[in-house]
Amino acid sequence: TASMVHNCCVPECPKAGYRIQDGRKVSFHKIPSREQIRLKWIHAIKRDPGKHFTISKHTKVCSLHFHEDDFTVDQFPINHKLRPNAVPSVFDFTPKL
């Protein structure tokens, strides 16, 4: 069976597949079902659900949009297990300070 290639739903993120150029693994994370944290994710990725964007079980955000400390330390980088309240915060469209 062919494994499904994941795509990142963040605007301007070209990430599809499981590795970046230097060989590091990239993981993909479902948008949380808990409404409070889900709304933070939607706001962070600048995508409002509607005609051009719907959230399904296949809607994922790649690990490149999280800081290393958003992941549980004992699992990083093997499993890329996100902390329960982690919100994506690393974006190309974030103004550089």
Rank of each mutant, 00 (worst) to 15 (best):
P49L: 05
P49M: 05
K30F: 03
I37A: 04
T54H: 10
S56L: 01
G50V: 04
H58C: 12
S63G: 09
A44L: 11
D48R: 08
H58Q: 15
K57A: 15
S63D: 01
H29S: 02
H52E: 13
S56M: 01
K40D: 07
T54D: 08
F66Y: 10
I31N: 06
R34M: 10
D48C: 06
T54N: 14
I42E: 06
H52Q: 12
G50A: 08
I31H: 04
I55C: 00
T59I: 05
E35C: 12
K25D: 10
K30S: 13
I42V: 13
S63M: 08
H65P: 04
H29F: 00
F66I: 07
T54P: 02
I55M: 00
G50R: 08
S56A: 02
F66W: 03
G50F: 06
L64M: 14
H65T: 01
F28Q: 14
I42L: 14
I37P: 00
T59R: 12
L39D: 13
S63E: 04
K40H: 11
P49Q: 11
S63Q: 02
T54L: 13
I42P: 00
V26L: 15
H65I: 03
C62F: 00
H65W: 05
H52D: 13
L64G: 12
H43C: 08
S27A: 14
S33W: 09
V26H: 00
K25Q: 11
P32E: 07
K30M: 13
C62P: 06
H58V: 11
W41R: 00
K25V: 10
C62Q: 04
S63P: 05
D48L: 10
V26P: 07
H65D: 03
E35L: 12
F53D: 00
H67S: 11
R34E: 14
K51D: 13
K51C: 08
P32L: 04
Q36L: 12
I45W: 04
H58N: 12
H67N: 10
K60N: 12
I37F: 03
Q36T: 13
E68T: 13
H67G: 05
I45M: 11
H52G: 11
I37Q: 05
E35T: 15
V26D: 06
T54G: 05
E68M: 05
S27L: 11
